Amino acid sequence: MRARVTLAAVAALAVLAAAGCSGDSSPLPGRPSASAAPAPTGAAPVDDSCRPRASLKPAGALPAPGRMPAGSYMAEIFKRGRLVLGTSQDTLLFSSRNPFTGKVEGFDVDMGRQIAAAIFGDPNKIQIKVIGYDKRVSSAMDGSVDVVADTMTANCARWKDVNFSTIYYDAGQKVLVSSTSTAKSIDDLGGKKVCAAKGSTSYDNIAKRPAKPIAVDRPGFGDCLVAFQQNEVDAISTDDTILVGLAAQDPYAKVVGTAFTEEPYGMAMSKKHPEFTRFVNAVLAENRANGTWKSTYERWLGDFGAAPRPPVAEYRD
């Protein structure tokens, strides 16, 4: 117990991976959420009214950096002199603040840098704006950021408010338990307390499991880690990407089971600029083909195995 309390103090200071990855289910002001959980014992309806993986088809070959089409949103970004990326600062390996340099870095940040490179010819022409995970949709909508890359699941409810890029990473929800636990999956945790971030779809999904684990919320997944280390909850459940970061902070924890949800990550952008979504998709298509996606994976996630094939692009027009 003493070891766990010590680790809890470290986690409270670092709070890495605190932002929810499978996303916020909190409604926008004035709009009910299709995925909001009515209560821990209920199951939120899933909005499957669209093809969430399918995005806008690229308009053609990418223009040369510095030569953005006149009147396009890319030309506006170029004139401003920087791309504004919305992301978190505490999602280890995807977008977390390096304690030595103070810079936010990771897989998601590199996705943003690749867009900046396509516009400017320079990946450093980027401003990183740290946003709350429950502000990702509204930040893309109101134009306070150009693009959100923040372990954000593309789903039909969100497509109503923002455009998503094609899928750049496939994640899935798993469970983290004590290294001494005999549980092999979340379905072995019936009646046990399983933590997820308040308002996250991870929280919603726990309540849907037939074994009836008890969903417990905390403000963020870093708070869940502290609760786990203080023996207030038995497990944590969210996307495998977040759990890897949490497990890296606690030698007495392990991630178990196969994914029981699909969490396709897309970058979110305002619906006001569909040409920008098409441009981003052209960048992603080029980077899948030329090996940039693979090298980005190997840089940040290579310790966990060989790079898989990047998600296949799907288009809706």
Results as ranks from 00 to 15, higher is better:
residue 216 V to E: 06
residue 216 V to G: 05
residue 216 V to C: 10
residue 216 V to T: 05
residue 216 V to W: 13
residue 216 V to K: 07
residue 216 V to M: 12
residue 219 P to D: 02
residue 219 P to C: 00
residue 220 G to S: 11
residue 220 G to K: 00
residue 221 F to A: 13
residue 222 G to W: 12
residue 222 G to M: 15
residue 224 C to K: 06
residue 224 C to P: 05
residue 225 L to Y: 00
residue 225 L to F: 00
residue 227 A to R: 06
residue 227 A to V: 05
residue 229 Q to V: 08
residue 231 N to Y: 13
residue 232 E to H: 08
residue 232 E to Y: 14
residue 232 E to W: 11
residue 233 V to P: 14
residue 234 D to I: 02
residue 236 I to S: 01
residue 237 S to I: 05
residue 238 T to S: 11
residue 239 D to V: 05
residue 240 D to T: 07
residue 240 D to G: 14
residue 240 D to E: 13
residue 241 T to D: 13
residue 241 T to Y: 04
residue 242 I to R: 15
residue 242 I to S: 08
residue 243 L to N: 10
residue 243 L to C: 11
residue 245 G to L: 08
residue 246 L to S: 04
residue 248 A to K: 10
residue 248 A to T: 10
residue 248 A to E: 14
residue 251 P to G: 12
residue 252 Y to W: 07
residue 252 Y to L: 11
residue 255 V to T: 10
residue 255 V to D: 06
residue 255 V to S: 12
residue 256 V to K: 09
residue 258 T to S: 10
residue 258 T to M: 11
residue 258 T to I: 11
residue 259 A to K: 14
residue 259 A to G: 12
residue 261 T to A: 03
residue 262 E to G: 13
residue 262 E to M: 06
residue 264 P to T: 14
residue 265 Y to H: 09
residue 265 Y to C: 08
residue 266 G to F: 10
residue 269 M to Q: 04
residue 269 M to T: 07
residue 269 M to R: 01
residue 270 S to W: 14
residue 270 S to Q: 06
residue 270 S to T: 11
residue 271 K to H: 03
residue 271 K to W: 02
residue 273 H to T: 01
residue 273 H to S: 01
residue 275 E to G: 06
residue 275 E to T: 02
residue 275 E to W: 01
residue 277 T to E: 11
residue 278 R to M: 12
residue 278 R to H: 05
residue 278 R to C: 13
residue 279 F to M: 05
residue 280 V to H: 11
residue 282 A to T: 10
residue 283 V to D: 03
